[in-house]
Write a protein that binds this DNA or RNA. Structure first.
Length: 356
DNA sequence: GATGCGTGGCG
DNA sequence: TCGCCAAGCAT
């Protein structure tokens, strides 16, 4: 089932030599600071390298160490995360920094179990920090590694299933004990990201093509077998844009969706009545225009939001927990991409594109 | 074990 | 256009 030790040693050597030759120069690879590695790994969860590049240096400049991050407000942290998505990651990272200050002298612990106990650190991230920052022989399986190992070993059961995941971790566990485990893990990920890619791998450039089961059996296009997933559920949403000078009335999200971020009042529904509800529950009084000013679509992993944007005139606050925000200079608060999209659709003065 | 959680790029 | 999915985690 699993390759003999000699084969594993050859694969390790090939992967390391290949990685040394072609590794991309990425900012987090220039650092051995466990904190920087941790931040990069959290940002990279379900997020492409090109996207993270726009955030990583800025975040580290603002919060150079766990203590600085722990001292910041949640709004400050989310402002640095604004647009990156999966905002719970930022809150967990923030919580993680406080955890480090409280329990580990403000440093990322070397002990694997202590690392695993950090908020927001699961099996993958713990292994990534352990191997990359501390060069410990800890395995990792992310989407890249799963694709590489599925093809290399010919694993043809669906991703996400318990037996498949166990097999993948076992294969990764078998491969990592050897020289430079951090570089080896990064080599596996780099290979998955650049050569053993989805949907079509470039096997001519692969350092371990010689032992690849999928290549030998002509199944590179079939493997890995993807995890079944549901289509995003359609949902109708109304948004209310109320302006006063340069300011737009925004509330702080409390729910799991966009929690901690600031945004214009939203509610489920498609008409003026729903917009009215959003207006009132946001602690605002004002006159809603009769028809939606704009309409847009925003797709999340599990929802397809059909958003009607209503503009409110003569709006004035009648409660607390919300405030006027200048979208062009929001300050230390986080805005979602959806919020920015809504404001753009509403136009600079509320006279935007007509509804579709 | 299934579900919820963002955003953007690509074939 | 549309589905896929990208260095996952918590509940």
């Amino acid at each position: 089932m699993r390759p003999p030790p000699s084969t594993l040693a050859t694969e390790r050597a090939s992967l390391l030599a290949w990685f040394d030759a072609v590794a991309r120069d990425l900012p987090w690879r220039r650092s051995r600071d466990p904190y920087a590695i941790w931040v990069s790994e959290v940002m990279l969860q379900q997020t492409r390298v090109d996207t993270v590049l726009r955030y990583f240096d800025r975040f580290l400049s603002r919060f150079p160490d766990p203590c600085a991050l722990a001292s910041a407000s949640e709004d400050e942290v989310l402002s640095m995360w604004s647009g990156l998505g999966y905002y719970r990651r930022a809150r967990l990272l923030h919580a993680g920094s406080k955890h480090l200050v409280a329990h580990h002298g403000g440093e990322v612990p070397q002990d694997p179990e202590a690392r695993r106990a950090m908020p927001g650190v699961g099996r993958y991230t713990a292994g990534a920090i352990g191997s990359i920052a501390f060069d410990r022989p800890e395995a990792i399986v992310d989407g890249n590694v799963a694709r590489v190992l599925s093809r290399l070993r010919g694993i043809d059961t669906p991703l996400g299933r318990a037996d498949t995941e166990a097999r993948l971790w076992a294969e990764a566990d078998a491969l990592v004990p050897g020289p430079r485990p951090g570089a080896l893990n990064q080599a596996l990920m780099e290979l998955g990201a650049t050569v053993c890619a989805h949907p079509t791998p470039r096997c001519a450039d692969c350092p371990v093509a010689g032992g690849c089961v999928a290549l030998r059996t002509g199944r590179t296009a079939e493997l890995p077998v993807p995890k079944p997933r549901r289509a995003p559920r359609p949902v109708d949403v109304v948004a209310v844009v109320a302006r006063q000078g340069r300011g737009v009335w925004m509330v702080r999200g409390q729910d799991a969706l966009f929690g901690g971020l600031w945004g214009v009042p939203l509610d489920e529904g498609k008409g003026r009545a729903a917009a009215e509800r959003a207006l009132i529950s946001a602690g605002l009084r004002g006159t809603l225009e009769r028809r939606a000013q704009a309409r847009l679509e925003h797709v999340l992993t599990h929802r397809r939001m059909d958003v009607r944007v209503f503009v409110a005139a003569d709006a004035h606050p009648m409660g607390e927990g919300a405030r006027w925000v200048d979208p062009d200079a929001p300050g230390d608060i986080g805005l979602s991409a959806l919020t920015r999209k809504i404001l753009a659709a509403a136009g600079p003065s509320g006279t935007a594109s007509p509804p579709r």
